[in-house]
Simulated scan of single mutants.
Amino acid sequence: MTARHSRRERTGAEQHDAAYEEARAALLLGQMVYDRRTELGLTQGELADRAGMTQPQLSRLESGGATPTVPLLTRLAAALDAELDITFKPHHGVAA
């Protein structure tokens, strides 16, 4: 296995930071879904039906308590009449 693909143990601080970033991303995604849903005047139940999921699943996603798969994100984008745009952007100050 190459060094790039090897796993190393994380320190407690690194684990905390990683968990914080994952929770932050989930909350931001949930807020985006909520904002677009309310902009369209849809209830959670209506959007859930459009996206092929249940209302409780959508509620968890909007509250940041769930991490959706890419296929679910694709269905949500279609249900929200929106374009799904997933990109990788380099961190500021990192040379390519």
Score class of each variant (00 low, 15 high):
residue 89 K to H: 09
residue 40 L to S: 02
residue 23 A to W: 12
residue 77 A to C: 09
residue 30 G to V: 05
residue 59 S to W: 14
residue 57 Q to K: 13
residue 78 A to H: 14
residue 9 E to T: 01
residue 81 D to K: 14
residue 43 T to G: 08
residue 24 R to D: 03
residue 74 T to L: 15
residue 79 A to C: 08
residue 86 I to F: 03
residue 3 A to Y: 01
residue 49 D to K: 14
residue 88 F to C: 04
residue 86 I to M: 03
residue 15 Q to D: 11
residue 4 R to I: 01
residue 57 Q to I: 09
residue 23 A to G: 12
residue 49 D to V: 07
residue 34 Y to M: 13
residue 19 A to P: 04
residue 5 H to Y: 05
residue 16 H to A: 10
residue 20 Y to S: 12
residue 57 Q to L: 12
residue 75 R to I: 02
residue 23 A to I: 07
residue 73 L to H: 10
residue 77 A to M: 11
residue 16 H to W: 11
residue 4 R to H: 00
residue 25 A to D: 12
residue 11 T to K: 08
residue 41 G to Q: 13
residue 8 R to G: 07
residue 69 T to H: 09
residue 46 E to I: 05
residue 82 A to M: 12
residue 24 R to Y: 07
residue 25 A to V: 03
residue 56 P to N: 12
residue 21 E to Y: 10
residue 33 V to Q: 04
residue 16 H to L: 11
residue 28 L to K: 09
residue 81 D to R: 15
residue 18 A to L: 15
residue 63 S to T: 14
residue 96 A to C: 06
residue 61 L to C: 07
residue 5 H to C: 00
residue 8 R to D: 01
residue 25 A to S: 08
residue 83 E to N: 11
residue 56 P to C: 12
residue 35 D to P: 05
residue 34 Y to V: 00
residue 46 E to A: 11
residue 41 G to T: 09
residue 48 A to F: 13
residue 80 L to Y: 14
residue 19 A to K: 15
residue 38 T to L: 06
residue 14 E to C: 06
residue 86 I to N: 08
residue 33 V to N: 01
residue 55 Q to W: 12
residue 74 T to F: 15
residue 77 A to T: 09
residue 93 G to R: 13
residue 83 E to Q: 10
residue 15 Q to I: 08
residue 27 L to E: 13
residue 46 E to S: 05
residue 34 Y to W: 06
residue 27 L to Y: 04
residue 71 P to M: 13
residue 70 V to E: 14
residue 75 R to A: 10
residue 41 G to M: 11
residue 5 H to A: 04
residue 69 T to L: 06
residue 65 G to K: 15
residue 53 M to K: 04
residue 88 F to D: 03
residue 26 A to T: 07
residue 8 R to S: 00
residue 95 A to I: 08
residue 51 A to E: 09
residue 3 A to R: 01
residue 10 R to H: 01
residue 33 V to E: 05
residue 83 E to F: 10
residue 19 A to E: 15
residue 20 Y to F: 15
residue 85 D to T: 08
residue 81 D to Y: 13
residue 64 G to C: 09
residue 79 A to W: 14
residue 38 T to D: 07
residue 63 S to Q: 15
residue 33 V to T: 02
residue 88 F to N: 08
residue 64 G to T: 11
residue 37 R to A: 05
residue 83 E to Y: 09
residue 15 Q to V: 05
residue 40 L to G: 00
residue 32 M to F: 01
residue 79 A to T: 06
residue 78 A to D: 14
residue 40 L to K: 13
residue 27 L to R: 12
residue 55 Q to N: 09
residue 42 L to P: 00
residue 80 L to I: 05
residue 45 G to T: 08
residue 37 R to Q: 07
residue 78 A to T: 08
residue 23 A to H: 15
residue 12 G to D: 13
